[in-house]
């Protein structure tokens, strides 16, 4: 498979009143043509910051992308692009769907025009044609009565319809990469499944690669080809879907899997939850970031950061438990069942 996006040593800091927050700490990963890559982690782990940085949408006043960071798309470093070149990529080659469809649409512009806008920018067509195509696009994403609805304003739409419109906007120019940042978090559970199914179908039709950012492992189980787990601004484990669900290696991944409710679970048993809170990224710990909350923490974990250990061609993990001197453990029970429990 062909690599279409290559991220190397991405480091992003935020300058705030309190000081410098290290939101993303030296991460590297690649995206392949037509695949769905999931980035999973709890809020504040840097997953949204990472996805926004690919589109260069971080606030320039406070966010600082380190100089040695590289985001290579189509042979060029996105981080170094200026003006027209950047405009060409945004919306045409890489598109994005945001978390909250309520606030992500312009309230004073008809939805049809909002979809048509990216067509007008990136293709040479007339306004009329663009609007027609926008209506087609709205039909494609399953908006009922698309012809009429295209003339309406976002406030006349329900949450699910707005997210469909967002998807239509994002996919209007048939981008090579779609970044979906928590696309269903703000929606009702029943709508969530519909939207995810829609994204998956369109992805197969258009052969778009997707970066799916989410905290919901249930969604990931049904969709992702590969999964990356992020914690405190770092990627701590990565692998294909089956590896991550059937043979996870990092205690944090274990904890995440155990905290997903399962159909098979006995009604009286308590749902597992991870104790504590993620570290303050104003002062990142010098050892493993998860050490504070890890049930298997060892003295070494607090002293030095773990290095990446290759498990298979596709899986690797950053954990001291992989060290030859570390004790061999039995994984906790309750890891399995997710992949069947909520697959779409």
């Amino acid at each position: 498979m062909k690599k279409i996006l290559d991220i190397k040593n991405l480091t992003i800091d935020f300058n705030t009143y309190a000081g410098r927050i290290q939101a993303v700490r030296n991460i590297s990963f690649s995206l392949y043509e037509g695949e769905i890559l999931a980035i999973v982690g709890e809020s504040g782990c840097g997953k949204t910051v990472t996805s926004k940085s690919i589109m260069r949408l971080l606030p320039e006043a406070t966010a600082q992308v380190n100089n040695h960071s590289e985001i290579i798309f189509d042979g060029q470093n996105v981080l170094k692009l200026k003006g027209k070149e950047l405009k060409k990529i945004r919306g045409d080659e890489i598109a994005m769907i945001f978390q909250d469809p309520m606030s992500a649409l312009n309230p004073t512009m008809k939805v049809g025009h909002q979809v048509a806008e990216s067509l007008l920018i990136h293709t040479k067509i007339t306004k009329k044609q663009a609007f027609k195509e926008a209506v087609q696009m709205l039909k494609l994403v399953g908006l009922p009565m698309a012809e009429k609805r295209a003339h309406e304003y976002p406030n006349q739409y329900s949450g699910g319809m707005r997210q469909r419109a967002m998807i239509a906007i994002a996919l209007a120019c048939k981008p090579k990469i779609l970044i979906a940042d928590e696309p269903t978090t703000a929606l009702d559970v029943t709508i969530q499944a519909q939207i995810m199914k829609l994204i998956k179908t369109l992805q197969a039709d258009l052969n778009t690669a997707i970066i799916l950012v989410t905290h919901d492992l249930g969604i990931v189980a049904g969709m992702a080809d590969r999964i990356q787990v992020m914690y405190a601004g770092q990627i701590i484990e990565r692998g294909v879907r089956e590896e991550l669900f059937y043979d996870p290696q990092h205690p944090y991944t274990w904890a995440l899997l155990r905290s997903v409710p399962k159909v098979s679970q006995k009604s009286k048993s308590q749902l597992y939850s991870i104790t504590g809170t993620p570290p303050d990224l104003l002062y990142p710990p010098k050892g493993c970031a998860f050490a504070e909350r890890c049930e298997y923490c060892m003295p070494i974990c607090r002293k030095d950061p773990p290095v990446e250990t290759i498990i298979s061609k596709t899986q690797s993990v950053n954990c001291w438990l992989q060290h030859k001197d570390a004790p061999k453990l039995n994984k906790p029970s309750g890891l399995k069942g997710v992949i069947h429990g909520q697959s779409l």
Binding site: C294, Y296, C297
Partner: peptide
């Protein structure tokens, strides 16, 4: 000695908080 599992320690020493 660095590889003995201690698990969760409620009181941690060298952890800087704002």
């Amino acid at each position: 000695a660095d590889f003995i599992i201690e698990g969760l320690i409620t009181q941690t020493i060298d952890h800087k908080m704002r």
